[in-house]
Structures are given as structure tokens and as C-alpha cells.
Design a binder for these strands. Structure first.
Length: 417
RNA sequence: CGGGCCGUCGUAUACCGGUAGUACGCUUGCUUUGGGAGCAAGAUGACCCAGUUCGAUUCUGGGCGGCCCGACCA
């Protein structure tokens, strides 16, 4: 994409109403726009990052047998009354409104109820199990206090997967598979070394759940980390009993702030009982389906990547999530030969299927470099009088600033390796 | 939901009970061109409502909105 037609612009100054690093940088770079507290819009480059993150998650969910759906955001009270989660006393994050005929309506803040009810139409025998269903779906939560940029918003997309199993044993097997898939996801989006499986409260459903916590001062959670074992315990459940269960000793743990980037937890038969999701086993006996739930917010993940990997010049995207893998920058000073050479390079990459953002704007070098730094595209190709006289293209990496001159004939191979 | 701070051109930031200034951005022209250029000329602004006052962007009250701390966060 030619940067000269990109409608977003970078800003030199951070907006005064944002303190969170993720929001400051994402707004300065033109990735997102703040609509109101806790509501952000995704702009072209931001949407590309968002989609890349979703794709990583989708690939990993498909790999463990996930089937993608998209449920409605509009929720009538019927199912939620059965599960006891319609009442504002029970759930205080509902956005509720009314239909024209006066009927009550809520905006979905999670989807256990509608999906469980939906599955009753398709599940009746042990032969129909196990099944794993997920979606990327807007959740609406009337948070008492939105904060930390895109880390805690009132409207956000969540990948929520729900597992349907015949037994606790079968469920546990999948639960561990999914935990492994989550670790692969965090690895692929560049947070692997900072992210730890963390024991947490199971809420009203189970004794424990597992969170995936990324170390960051911007985090809302406090965890106790055992680096050697690569696991942690959330402060919520940091008790002698839990430590004993896990075989951890207090003196081996570090206290850290962390961002919850994922959460998986057992639901047991809480919703299958409430909504009558049962199957008939081999002996003709009716049994409730054992469920689990698995969430990752791609937006929060995007914010976390910025929080953890950005440097003092701007954002640093890992390759798999970057809006473009390559950023071509022409430093022409009006020199037509340089412009022609940069155009040729852009066309060459396009032909070979390498997507690039091409800074073809008629600006001075300093401004282009400063913009490139804040945008954070991992690989930068510079074309200028200097590189042309040296017979190549300058390739530099955003992450460490290293620069190498590569002959144009070898550039495609260089980028592919 | 309790507490605190704050609403001024597109962005950031001043000052002020009496003509609202600066920087970046934007427009026009010339020069400049490997790390956010220079000169010149322009355009653009007081969240809303009430009150006090000769006069309110400024003071007072209310509303709306934003941020932070806490509570909350299946």
C-alpha cells in the first residue's frame, strides 16, 4: 500500500486524555481512534494488526478441532433467566434495552447460554461428542470503569471457544490441549517469553481456572511467578492451601504485575444442567454434557504487544502481527531516479506476493524515519541516492536497528528467509 | 459506585473579568532534502445550560465528557 494514500496520519504528541502507553502509541501511529471511554475504533493499519492476531488464534483453534461460528449479540432474557444470569443483581455488566414491542433485550457480554441452548438442537448421542465451537464476537460489558487504553474496554471482540465433552476425563484432555494451543498463540504473537500459565480462581464454576498472564507493569493483576517451572499463581488464590496443591514454596516465587491475556476454565455441567444439554450414552442413559470455556481478546492482546515490546521510538511489531511485513522508504529529495527505483522495488515485491507499506510521500528523510519508527513495521527497506550508488537496498530491522546493504537482485530471497 | 484532577484551533500547551497567544499540523509561494528543515503570507479555537457582572473563555451552580486512585472485573 502506498502511504501517500493512507488516510491516517501520525501525531507527534500523545493525546492528553490517555496515560496508557498502548493507547498513546496506537493513537499517535494512527492505528486506532478513541470514540469514548472504553470504546475504540480500528483504523486501516490497526485493523490489519487485529486481523493478523485473529488469524493466529483461528489457526490454533482450528488445529485443535475448533469449528467457527458467529452468534448474535442480541440476547433475549429467556435463556439467561434459566441460568440465573439475567438479573442485574447477579450480573452487573449488562447493557440492556427494549424492543419496540416492549420486550427486554440485552447485548451479549458472554455466550454460554445461547451456545448451550443452540447445541441442544444438534447434540443428543454420545456419537455427537466431543465438539468444540468458537467465535470471534463483540462482547458488550458495562464496566464501571474502563481503563488502560484498549486493555479494558466496554465493547471488545473476544475469541470464545466452548468445549462439549462426554466426561470430565475427556474434558481435561482437551483443556490441556487448549492450554498448549494458547501458549503457541502467545509465542507466535511475540509474547511467549513474557507469558505464563497462572492458577486462578474458578469463580462460581470450579475450584480453579487457568489464566495466561503477560508480565507488564501495565497489568491489573498481581501474580506470583515461579520462573523455573514457568508457572504462576494469581494473588486471588495465593493461599497456603493452593501453594501446597501446586507444590510451590513462597520463597521461590516473584511477585509481578501482569496482564491477563487469556483465561480457560471448566464449566462442569453448570450450563448443560440449566439449559438441558444432555446426551444419551452407550447404555442408553441420559447424561449432562461437560463443558469448558476458553477466551482470548485479540484487542487486549494487541495492546499488550505494544505495552511489552514498544521502545522509546514507538511500536515494535513481531512479524506475524505487523500490519505489513515490509516498509519501503524512498529518500529521493526529488531525484526521479530514486523514485523510479523505489517504485520498481514496490512492484517487484507486489509481484512476488510480499506485502509492503511504501512510503512514497514527498517528505524529508527525518520525518519518514520517525514515522516508520512509530509505526513499527519489522523490516525496513530504504532506497536513496546513497543506496543506489552502492548498488543495493538498505535493509534494517525495527527491533534492533541493524542495517545491511542487499543487492536488489537478492532482495526477495533475503526477505523470504 | 466512593475519592481526586481536568475540559481553550485538528493535536499539544499558555494567559486572562475587557482584542485569546505559542508550537506542530493545514493552505500558498520560494529555498531545502539520510533522522521530525528555513523564510514569508494565510485559515482555524473557549463542552453545554443557568447565575453573578456594564461585560464571563475566566467567577459560582448544575449538566455532559475525559483521565487517575480505590471498589468491581463469569
Amino acid at each position: 500500500m502506498r502511504q501517500s494514500v493512507l488516510f491516517t496520519k501520525t501525531r507527534r504528541e500523545a493525546p492528553k486524555d490517555e496515560v496508557a502507553k498502548n493507547a498513546q502509541l496506537l493513537i499517535r501511529a494512527g492505528y486506532i481512534h478513541k470514540e469514548m471511554a472504553g470504546a475504540y475504533s480500528y483504523l486501516p493499519l490497526g485493523l490489519r494488526v487485529f486481523k493478523n492476531i485473529k488469524n493466529v488464534i483461528r489457526e490454533e483453534m482450528n488445529a485443535i478441532g475448533g469449528q467457527e461460528v458467529e452468534l448474535s449479540s442480541l440476547q433475549g432474557p429467556r435463556l439467561w433467566k434459566k441460568s440465573g444470569r439475567w438479573d442485574d443483581e447477579a450480573v452487573d455488566v449488562w447493557f440492556k434495552t427494549r424492543l419496540k414491542d416492549g420486550g427486554e433485550l440485552g447485548l451479549g457480554w458472554t455466550h454460554e447460554e445461547p451456545l448451550t441452548a443452540l447445541m441442544t438442537e444438534h447434540m443428543s448421542s454420545y456419537k455427537d461428542l466431543p465438539r468444540y465451537v468458537y467465535q470471534f464476537q463483540k462482547k458488550f460489558r458495562n464496566e464501571p470503569r474502563a481503563k488502560s487504553g484498549i486493555l479494558r474496554t466496554r465493547e471488545f471482540v473476544m475469541k470464545d471457544l466452548y468445549s462439549f465433552n462426554k466426561s470430565e476425563k475427556e474434558f481435561r484432555q482437551f483443556y490441556e490441549q487448549c492450554a498448549a494451543a494458547y501458549l503457541r498463540i502467545f509465542e507466535r504473537v511475540g509474547l511467549g517469553e513474557h507469558t505464563f500459565r497462572t492458577f486462578a480462581s474458578g469463580g462460581s464454576f470450579a475450584k480453579y481456572s487457568d489464566e495466561f498472564q503477560t508480565l507488564s507493569a501495565a497489568g491489573e493483576d498481581t501474580i506470583y511467578l515461579h520462573r523455573g517451572k514457568g508457572i504462576a499463581v494469581n494473588k486471588e488464590v495465593y493461599t497456603d492451601e493452593v501453594l501446597a496443591d501446586l507444590g510451590l514454596k513462597k520463597e521461590e516465587l516473584e511477585e509481578k504485575k501482569a496482564i491477563e491475556v487469556g483465561n480457560i476454565f471448566p464449566l462442569g455441567t453448570r450450563f448443560s444442567d440449566a439449559l438441558d444439554l444432555t446426551y444419551t450414552d452407550e447404555k442408553g442413559k441420559k447424561k449432562p454434557v461437560v463443558m469448558g470455556s476458553y477466551g482470548i481478546g485479540p484487542g487486549r492482546l494487541m495492546g499488550t504487544i505494544v505495552e511489552v515490546l514498544a521502545d522509546d521510538k514507538g511500536i515494535v511489531w513481531p512479524k506475524e502481527v505487523a500490519p505489513f511485513p515490509v516498509h519501503i522508504i524512498s529518500i529521493s529529495g526529488g531525484n526521479a531516479d530514486v523514485i523510479a527505483e523505489a517504485n520498481r522495488l514496490y512492484d517487484l515485491l507486489k509481484e512476488t506476493g510480499i506485502e509492503a507499506l511504501y512510503d512514497d510521500r514527498d517528505l524529508r528523510a527525518g520525518e519518514k524515519f520517525a514515522d516508520a519508527d512509530i509505526l513499527g513495521i519489522p523490516t525496513r527497506l530504504v532506497v536513496s541516492e546513497k543506496t543506489m550508488s552502492e548498488g543495493g537496498v538498505e535493509v534494517s530491522l525495527r527491533a534492533n536497528g541493524s542495517a545491511t546493504l542487499v543487492p536488489e537482485s537478492g532482495i526477495v530471497d533475503y526477505l523470504r528467509k
